[in-house]
Amino acid sequence: MSTEALTPTTYINHHLSFFAKPLGDGSFWTLHVDSLVTAVLLGIVGFGFLWWVVRGATSGVPTKRQAFVELAIEFVDDQAKGIFHGDRHKFVAPLALTVFVWVLLMNAMDFLPVDIMSWVYKNVLGLNSWHSVPTADINTTFALALAVWFLMIFFSIKVKGLGGWIHELFCTPFGSNPLLWIFNLMFNLVEYVSKPLSHSLRLYGNMYAGEIIFLLLGMWAATGIVGTIFGAILGAGWAIFHILIVALQAFIFMMLTIVYISMAHESH
């Protein structure tokens, strides 16, 4: 891939490094152009497709394309209906659909064979290091989880009022005795911190680990022709298993999103 000597470390590092563009001083002011561009492109493709189908949607006999989109929407809607009590069509269900479609597409980038894509990025697009899977970038998963987290707090305050929300912070889950306020608050803080962490790290960890395993299997190719074939077979097996992980993680991410937003709507 690169001009330096190819060792396992450089191989893995190359595949895991981002196309980072510094926009200011300090490590925070860098932008992973690859994550952002891939994510936005996938979003445009995915939601553009949905929009294209929806624009021609009919209430009569649907085309196969429309039936497929409706299937996806009804699948998401069913999940939202089971968890969220209220008018889910206004926000929660569309949010869940957005999360599901986008995360599924971003996860699915993991199916692209890493070394071939790396070659394409380098020789066709002239990009030396380009990371395909946006959800294997912790920035993406944190962005999604924190957005959901802010929405959660927003809806908590919107539904219960600011006073109601603060009251809930101090008086649940143990009770409204003043002696328990501090424990309640600590409990709630832990909950508020753990929610986005578990939400984002679960997705990130799964996708990142999946990618690492692809890379490790890819290194079988360094051992010769037999190793290459063996690695290819293992890679195929892992890819098949990975289909499950990709869909499952997208589903879990969506479900947690619905659950968190629903919890914000309900008083304890």
Binding site: A20, L23, S27, F28, W29, T30, L31, H32, S35, L36, A39, V40, G43, F47, L50, W51, K90, F91, P94, L95, L97, T98, V101, W102, P134, D137, I138, N139, T140, F142, A143, L144, L146, A147
Partner: peptide, 20 residues
Amino acid sequence: INLTMISQGIAFAIFIWFTA
């Protein structure tokens, strides 16, 4: 954690708005 997070968040918000 870097600027990518904020940009992805903005993209997410736009996609939510578009879908909704």
